[in-house]
Computed example of a mutant assay.
Amino acid sequence: MKYQTRKKALILLADGTIFYGKAVAGKEGSAFGEVCFNTGMTGYQEIFTDPSYFGQLMVTTNAHIGNYGTKKEEVESEGIKIAGLICRNFSYHYSRPDADSSLEEFLNSNNLLAISDVDTRALVSYIRDHGAMNAVITTEVDNLDNLKKKLADFPDMKGLELASKVSTKEPYFFGDENAQFKISALDIGIKKNILRNLASRDCYIKVFPYNASFSELQSFEPDGYFLSNGPGDPEPLNEAIATTKEILKTDKPLFGICLGHQVLALANGISTYKMHHGHRGINHPIKNLLTGKGEITSQNHGFAINREETEAHKNVEITHVHLNDHTVAGIRLKDKPVFSVQYHPEASPGPNDASYLFDEFIENVKNNKN
């Protein structure tokens, strides 16, 4: 019955290209954002709640979405962060015994517009050829002229500061207050599984807002610092970059992931750029240049750091590279216990090949504390 009553819907890209589909359930309206795609076969709930995806229209390349339902524990933040969902086949019924609810109920509770029955293979191929761009998904199929005007005025991701939209408003604690190590974390879009990984390694974490000053982070008297993942362009994050520069003066351990990796690069005078269509999936190949070993990793980013500037920097060493396009996937400072990676060692979803990076951070913390 739901299939028969669903409304017509479409995706209008910024260049005027249109792809057709149908609205999931009874949700109507329009949703704007940058259209991107994720190639993961599983983990849709974690992807939808990842703050790094804030403001983006998510195309899932896996043909079936919703087939295993949703579970309260499998979220990476409070609520859905994507701007809208685009998929091929939407499953209204789920088969996982320990699921709490259907994906339809989860989307409705978060008031998210989703469309299915889209030729996602053609759409993803188009994005790969023409690059990530702004788009609108809508059930207002007879209102295209007005939607085109609104889409033309919608801000580009380049130059867009979004960390403030997803960061905590007030500091909070995570983990056991009697843990061996204290970590000050700058929240520019942090995922819960990062905090879980740190807490499981005997850390008590105080999480600070995106614009927290160095003195605020230092007031916790931490043994180390952490820069989180997050959405948007890293270059407008002047406060986070300034705070990072102050952290570097302390010579204490620092670990950055994704957007935090880009902020660390900017704090060292290395520029960033917007990628053609970014890296988003759970099977991206990385080479660890320090060990020579390969890693399969979870990735989600539309910006990267400048490789030529990184190679020319006298105090920065490239530690990891992406094997598909040779972009910089990891760096470390030569004279400080500081490093970062462009991918997600906490996974969720994805493989655990890179979880050792948390151990390396803790080892730096131990050595520095002793």
Rank of each mutant, 00 (worst) to 15 (best):
M1K: 11
T5N: 15
R6L: 02
K7S: 13
T17R: 06
A25P: 00
K27Q: 10
G40D: 10
T42P: 00
T42W: 01
Y44R: 00
E46N: 12
G55K: 04
E73F: 01
G79W: 07
C87V: 14
R88W: 05
S95M: 10
S109D: 15
L112W: 01
H130P: 00
H130Y: 10
M133I: 01
M133K: 08
E140C: 03
N143F: 11
N143Y: 13
L147I: 12
V166C: 02
T168F: 02
K169T: 08
F181K: 01
G189Q: 05
N193D: 14
R196Q: 01
N197C: 11
R201L: 08
K206R: 15
N211A: 14
L217M: 15
F220S: 13
Y225T: 06
N229V: 08
P236G: 06
L237W: 08
A242N: 10
L259G: 04
L264K: 00
A267P: 14
Y273R: 11
N283Y: 09
H284W: 08
H284Y: 14
I286P: 07
L289E: 11
G294L: 12
Q299Y: 04
E308G: 00
H313N: 15
V316L: 13
D325S: 01
H326S: 14
D335T: 11
E346L: 04
L357E: 02
F358C: 06
F361N: 03
F361Y: 15
V365H: 07
